[in-house]
Protein backbone atom coordinates (compact mmCIF):
# COMPACT_ATOMS: atom_id res chain seq x y z
CA UNK A 1 0.00 0.00 0.00
CA UNK A 2 2.71 2.48 1.05
CA UNK A 3 4.57 2.18 -2.20
CA UNK A 4 1.61 2.39 -4.48
CA UNK A 5 1.57 5.67 -6.43
CA UNK A 6 -1.55 7.76 -6.01
CA UNK A 7 -0.29 10.59 -8.19
CA UNK A 8 1.96 10.03 -11.15
CA UNK A 9 3.07 12.97 -13.26
CA UNK A 10 5.41 12.38 -16.17
CA UNK A 11 6.95 15.07 -18.32
CA UNK A 12 4.16 17.55 -17.63
CA UNK A 13 4.26 20.67 -19.78
CA UNK A 14 1.73 23.47 -19.40
CA UNK A 15 1.87 26.73 -21.30
CA UNK A 16 -0.17 29.90 -20.99
CA UNK A 17 0.25 31.58 -24.35
CA UNK A 18 3.99 31.93 -24.86
CA UNK A 19 4.75 31.49 -21.15
CA UNK A 20 5.76 27.99 -20.09
CA UNK A 21 4.47 27.59 -16.54
CA UNK A 22 5.40 23.92 -16.13
CA UNK A 23 8.27 22.56 -18.14
CA UNK A 24 8.70 18.79 -18.09
CA UNK A 25 7.79 18.05 -14.50
CA UNK A 26 7.76 14.59 -12.89
CA UNK A 27 6.10 13.89 -9.57
CA UNK A 28 5.17 10.78 -7.64
CA UNK A 29 3.05 10.65 -4.53
CA UNK A 30 3.07 7.42 -2.51
CA UNK A 31 -0.17 6.30 -0.93
CA UNK A 32 -0.63 7.36 2.66
CA UNK A 33 2.15 9.93 2.65
CA UNK A 34 2.48 13.70 2.64
CA UNK A 35 4.22 15.22 -0.35
CA UNK A 36 5.22 18.86 -0.30
CA UNK A 37 5.72 20.81 -3.50
CA UNK A 38 8.05 23.59 -2.51
CA UNK A 39 9.00 26.56 -4.60
CA UNK A 40 9.00 30.34 -4.96
CA UNK A 41 6.21 32.46 -6.45
CA UNK A 42 5.48 31.57 -10.04
CA UNK A 43 7.36 28.25 -9.89
CA UNK A 44 4.38 26.37 -11.30
CA UNK A 45 3.05 24.77 -8.10
CA UNK A 46 -0.58 25.78 -8.56
CA UNK A 47 -0.51 24.91 -12.24
CA UNK A 48 0.82 21.43 -11.42
CA UNK A 49 -1.69 20.79 -8.67
CA UNK A 50 -4.60 22.10 -10.72
CA UNK A 51 -3.63 19.85 -13.58
CA UNK A 52 -3.83 16.90 -11.18
CA UNK A 53 -7.26 18.13 -10.07
CA UNK A 54 -8.48 18.09 -13.67
CA UNK A 55 -8.77 21.84 -14.15
CA UNK A 56 -6.16 22.02 -16.87
CA UNK A 57 -5.28 19.79 -19.75
CA UNK A 58 -1.54 19.07 -20.10
CA UNK A 59 0.11 20.43 -23.24
CA UNK A 60 2.44 17.46 -23.05
CA UNK A 61 3.14 14.60 -20.69
CA UNK A 62 0.78 12.43 -18.69
CA UNK A 63 -0.96 12.80 -15.37
CA UNK A 64 -2.58 9.92 -13.48
CA UNK A 65 -4.37 10.44 -10.21
CA UNK A 66 -5.62 7.34 -8.38
CA UNK A 67 -4.95 5.62 -11.68
CA UNK A 68 -7.35 7.91 -13.54
CA UNK A 69 -6.95 10.64 -16.14
CA UNK A 70 -8.09 13.76 -14.25
CA UNK A 71 -9.76 15.31 -17.30
CA UNK A 72 -11.26 12.30 -19.05
CA UNK A 73 -12.27 10.49 -15.85
CA UNK A 74 -13.23 13.60 -13.89
CA UNK A 75 -16.63 12.29 -12.90
CA UNK A 76 -15.12 9.21 -11.28
CA UNK A 77 -12.14 10.99 -9.76
CA UNK A 78 -13.75 13.99 -8.14
CA UNK A 79 -15.76 12.27 -5.43
CA UNK A 80 -12.52 10.64 -4.28
CA UNK A 81 -10.33 13.73 -3.88
CA UNK A 82 -10.46 16.78 -1.63
CA UNK A 83 -9.46 20.15 -3.01
CA UNK A 84 -8.34 23.34 -1.31
CA UNK A 85 -7.76 26.09 -3.85
CA UNK A 86 -5.10 28.71 -3.30
CA UNK A 87 -7.90 31.21 -2.73
CA UNK A 88 -11.67 31.64 -2.88
CA UNK A 89 -14.20 28.95 -3.60
CA UNK A 90 -16.95 30.02 -1.23
CA UNK A 91 -20.17 31.99 -1.84
CA UNK A 92 -19.41 35.43 -0.42
CA UNK A 93 -22.80 35.58 1.32
CA UNK A 94 -22.63 32.08 2.81
CA UNK A 95 -21.98 31.52 6.49
CA UNK A 96 -18.98 29.38 7.34
CA UNK A 97 -20.96 26.63 8.96
CA UNK A 98 -23.71 26.41 6.36
CA UNK A 99 -21.15 26.29 3.55
CA UNK A 100 -19.40 23.36 5.21
CA UNK A 101 -22.71 21.60 5.87
CA UNK A 102 -23.61 22.08 2.25
CA UNK A 103 -20.33 20.58 1.02
CA UNK A 104 -20.92 17.66 3.37
CA UNK A 105 -24.31 17.02 1.74
CA UNK A 106 -22.65 16.48 -1.63
CA UNK A 107 -20.82 13.43 -0.24
CA UNK A 108 -22.05 9.96 0.58
CA UNK A 109 -20.43 9.55 3.97
CA UNK A 110 -19.07 12.88 5.20
CA UNK A 111 -17.28 13.73 8.43
CA UNK A 112 -19.21 14.99 11.40
CA UNK A 113 -19.49 18.70 10.62
CA UNK A 114 -19.77 19.89 14.22
CA UNK A 115 -16.64 18.02 15.22
CA UNK A 116 -14.74 19.34 12.22
CA UNK A 117 -15.76 22.92 13.00
CA UNK A 118 -14.59 22.45 16.54
CA UNK A 119 -11.36 20.80 15.41
CA UNK A 120 -10.45 23.73 13.17
CA UNK A 121 -11.46 26.39 15.66
CA UNK A 122 -14.22 27.74 13.45
CA UNK A 123 -16.86 27.54 16.18
CA UNK A 124 -16.75 31.22 17.03
CA UNK A 125 -17.29 32.30 13.44
CA UNK A 126 -19.72 29.64 12.21
CA UNK A 127 -22.44 32.21 11.66
CA UNK A 128 -20.20 34.79 10.03
CA UNK A 129 -20.53 35.23 6.27
CA UNK A 130 -17.48 34.32 4.23
CA UNK A 131 -16.66 37.87 3.16
CA UNK A 132 -16.47 38.93 6.81
CA UNK A 133 -14.17 36.10 7.90
CA UNK A 134 -10.51 36.92 8.50
CA UNK A 135 -8.03 35.60 5.96
CA UNK A 136 -6.96 32.82 8.30
CA UNK A 137 -10.54 31.80 9.00
CA UNK A 138 -11.24 31.68 5.27
CA UNK A 139 -8.20 29.41 4.86
CA UNK A 140 -9.39 27.06 7.58
CA UNK A 141 -12.88 26.90 6.11
CA UNK A 142 -11.40 26.00 2.72
CA UNK A 143 -9.34 23.29 4.41
CA UNK A 144 -12.41 21.93 6.16
CA UNK A 145 -14.23 21.85 2.81
CA UNK A 146 -11.38 19.82 1.33
CA UNK A 147 -11.55 17.07 3.94
CA UNK A 148 -15.25 16.94 4.85
CA UNK A 149 -16.05 14.35 2.16
CA UNK A 150 -13.56 11.77 3.55
CA UNK A 151 -11.33 11.81 0.48
CA UNK A 152 -8.54 9.33 -0.20
CA UNK A 153 -6.29 12.05 -1.49
CA UNK A 154 -6.27 15.77 -0.73
CA UNK A 155 -4.64 18.60 -2.65
CA UNK A 156 -3.93 21.61 -0.47
CA UNK A 157 -2.63 24.69 -2.29
CA UNK A 158 -0.75 26.73 0.31
CA UNK A 159 -2.87 25.59 3.24
CA UNK A 160 -1.02 27.71 5.80
CA UNK A 161 -0.55 30.94 3.85
CA UNK A 162 -1.63 33.80 6.07
CA UNK A 163 -2.14 31.72 9.22
CA UNK A 164 -0.86 32.75 12.64
CA UNK A 165 1.66 30.36 14.23
CA UNK A 166 -0.95 28.60 16.32
CA UNK A 167 -3.36 28.03 13.44
CA UNK A 168 -0.43 26.90 11.34
CA UNK A 169 0.52 24.28 13.86
CA UNK A 170 -3.08 23.15 14.11
CA UNK A 171 -3.20 22.72 10.34
CA UNK A 172 0.01 20.68 10.50
CA UNK A 173 -1.57 18.49 13.15
CA UNK A 174 -4.59 17.94 10.95
CA UNK A 175 -2.39 16.89 8.04
CA UNK A 176 -0.61 14.43 10.34
CA UNK A 177 -3.94 13.05 11.53
CA UNK A 178 -4.99 12.60 7.90
CA UNK A 179 -1.82 10.66 7.24
CA UNK A 180 -2.28 8.56 10.34
CA UNK A 181 -5.72 7.60 9.05
CA UNK A 182 -4.40 6.68 5.64
CA UNK A 183 -5.19 9.79 3.59
CA UNK A 184 -2.58 10.87 1.04
CA UNK A 185 -1.79 14.57 0.91
CA UNK A 186 -0.19 16.82 -1.68
CA UNK A 187 0.47 20.32 -0.44
CA UNK A 188 2.26 23.31 -1.84
CA UNK A 189 4.21 25.70 0.30
CA UNK A 190 6.81 28.44 0.38
CA UNK A 191 7.85 27.45 3.86
CA UNK A 192 10.90 25.30 4.44
CA UNK A 193 10.02 24.45 7.98
CA UNK A 194 6.60 23.31 6.84
CA UNK A 195 8.08 20.90 4.33
CA UNK A 196 10.66 19.66 6.84
CA UNK A 197 8.06 19.20 9.57
CA UNK A 198 5.30 17.60 7.58
CA UNK A 199 6.44 15.98 4.42
CA UNK A 200 7.58 12.46 3.76
CA UNK A 201 8.67 13.59 0.33
CA UNK A 202 9.57 17.01 -0.94
CA UNK A 203 9.72 18.15 -4.54
CA UNK A 204 11.54 21.43 -4.93
CA UNK A 205 10.20 23.20 -7.98
CA UNK A 206 11.70 26.14 -9.76
CA UNK A 207 10.73 27.62 -13.10
CA UNK A 208 8.38 24.74 -13.85
CA UNK A 209 10.88 21.96 -13.18
CA UNK A 210 11.63 19.71 -10.23
CA UNK A 211 15.17 20.63 -9.22
CA UNK A 212 15.40 18.18 -6.31
CA UNK A 213 13.26 15.47 -4.88
CA UNK A 214 13.44 13.22 -1.83
CA UNK A 215 12.74 13.06 1.86
CA UNK A 216 13.68 16.19 3.82
CA UNK A 217 16.60 14.26 5.35
CA UNK A 218 17.90 13.11 1.98
CA UNK A 219 17.67 16.58 0.57
CA UNK A 220 19.39 18.16 3.53
CA UNK A 221 22.09 15.54 3.47
CA UNK A 222 22.52 15.43 -0.27
CA UNK A 223 26.26 16.18 -0.60
CA UNK A 224 26.07 19.17 1.70
CA UNK A 225 28.47 19.46 4.61
CA UNK A 226 26.94 19.48 8.04
CA UNK A 227 28.55 20.18 11.36
CA UNK A 228 28.57 18.48 14.76
CA UNK A 229 29.90 20.35 17.77
CA UNK A 230 30.55 19.32 21.36
CA UNK A 231 32.71 20.27 24.27
CA UNK A 232 34.69 17.91 26.50
CA UNK A 233 38.04 17.43 28.17
CA UNK A 234 40.77 19.39 26.31
CA UNK A 235 43.30 17.48 24.25
CA UNK A 236 41.27 14.52 22.98
CA UNK A 237 42.99 12.45 20.30
CA UNK A 238 41.37 13.58 17.08
CA UNK A 239 43.33 11.05 15.06
CA UNK A 240 41.78 8.17 16.98
CA UNK A 241 38.31 9.65 16.59
CA UNK A 242 38.80 10.13 12.85
CA UNK A 243 39.71 6.45 12.43
CA UNK A 244 36.27 5.59 13.75
CA UNK A 245 34.54 7.98 11.35
CA UNK A 246 33.83 7.53 7.62
CA UNK A 247 36.20 8.87 5.01
CA UNK A 248 35.77 12.50 4.17
CA UNK A 249 34.96 13.52 7.69
CA UNK A 250 37.04 16.21 9.38
CA UNK A 251 37.55 16.66 13.11
CA UNK A 252 39.27 19.49 14.93
CA UNK A 253 39.70 21.00 18.38
CA UNK A 254 38.96 24.64 17.73
CA UNK A 255 39.79 26.02 21.16
CA UNK A 256 40.83 23.83 24.07
CA UNK A 257 37.88 21.54 24.78
CA UNK A 258 35.70 22.74 21.89
CA UNK A 259 35.43 20.18 19.08
CA UNK A 260 34.00 20.37 15.60
CA UNK A 261 33.28 17.50 13.24
CA UNK A 262 32.29 18.27 9.66
CA UNK A 263 30.98 15.91 7.05
CA UNK A 264 27.86 13.95 6.39
CA UNK A 265 26.27 14.15 9.80
CA UNK A 266 23.63 11.46 10.08
CA UNK A 267 22.37 9.40 13.02
CA UNK A 268 25.07 6.82 12.35
CA UNK A 269 27.83 9.39 12.67
CA UNK A 270 26.33 10.80 15.84
CA UNK A 271 26.22 7.30 17.35
CA UNK A 272 29.83 6.67 16.40
CA UNK A 273 30.98 9.90 18.02
CA UNK A 274 29.12 9.29 21.28
CA UNK A 275 30.29 5.69 21.58
CA UNK A 276 33.88 6.79 20.91
CA UNK A 277 33.44 9.32 23.73
CA UNK A 278 32.08 6.59 25.99
CA UNK A 279 35.08 4.38 25.27
CA UNK A 280 37.41 7.22 26.17
CA UNK A 281 35.55 8.24 29.30
CA UNK A 282 34.56 11.59 27.85
CA UNK A 283 31.27 13.26 28.62
CA UNK A 284 30.44 15.23 25.44
CA UNK A 285 28.66 18.36 26.62
CA UNK A 286 26.52 20.62 24.52
CA UNK A 287 26.32 18.38 21.48
CA UNK A 288 24.76 20.28 18.63
CA UNK A 289 24.13 19.36 15.06
CA UNK A 290 23.95 22.11 12.47
CA UNK A 291 22.28 20.64 9.50
CA UNK A 292 21.76 22.46 6.27
CA UNK A 293 18.16 23.48 6.01
CA UNK A 294 16.08 23.03 2.90
CA UNK A 295 16.50 26.75 2.55
CA UNK A 296 20.25 26.27 2.01
CA UNK A 297 19.56 23.39 -0.34
CA UNK A 298 17.23 25.51 -2.39
CA UNK A 299 19.63 28.40 -2.47
CA UNK A 300 22.39 26.07 -3.57
CA UNK A 301 20.29 24.53 -6.33
CA UNK A 302 18.76 27.63 -7.83
CA UNK A 303 20.81 30.55 -6.56
CA UNK A 304 17.52 32.07 -5.47
CA UNK A 305 15.90 32.80 -2.17
CA UNK A 306 12.82 30.67 -1.69
CA UNK A 307 10.56 33.38 -0.51
CA UNK A 308 10.96 35.86 -3.30
Amino acid sequence: MKNESVVQVRGLVKRYGSKTAVDGLDLDVRAGTVTAVLGPNGAGKTTTVETCEGYRRPDAGTVRVLGLDPVADAARLRPRIGVMLQSGGVYSGARAEEMLRHMAKLHADPLDVDALIERLGLGSCGRTTYRRLSGGQQQRLALAMAVVGRPELVFLDEPTAGLDPQARRSTWDLVRELRADGVSTVLTTHFMDEAEELADDVAIVDAGKVVAQGSPEELCRGGAENTLRFTGRPGLDMGSLLKALPDGTAAAELTPGAYRISGTVDPQLLATVTSWCAQHGVMPDGISVERHSLEDVFLGLTGKELRA
Binding site: P79, H107, A115, R119, G149, R150, E152, L178, A180
Partner: peptide, 13 residues
Protein backbone atom coordinates in the same frame (compact mmCIF):
# COMPACT_ATOMS: atom_id res chain seq x y z
CA UNK B 1 -11.23 13.75 17.08
CA UNK B 2 -10.02 10.22 17.54
CA UNK B 3 -7.96 7.88 15.42
CA UNK B 4 -9.84 6.67 12.38
CA UNK B 5 -11.88 9.84 12.08
CA UNK B 6 -10.48 10.62 8.67
CA UNK B 7 -10.31 7.08 7.33
CA UNK B 8 -11.24 7.50 3.68
CA UNK B 9 -14.81 6.74 2.77
CA UNK B 10 -15.17 8.77 -0.39
CA UNK B 11 -18.21 8.91 -2.61
CA UNK B 12 -20.80 11.21 -4.11
CA UNK B 13 -24.22 11.60 -2.54
Amino acid sequence: MSAGTYTPRPGAA
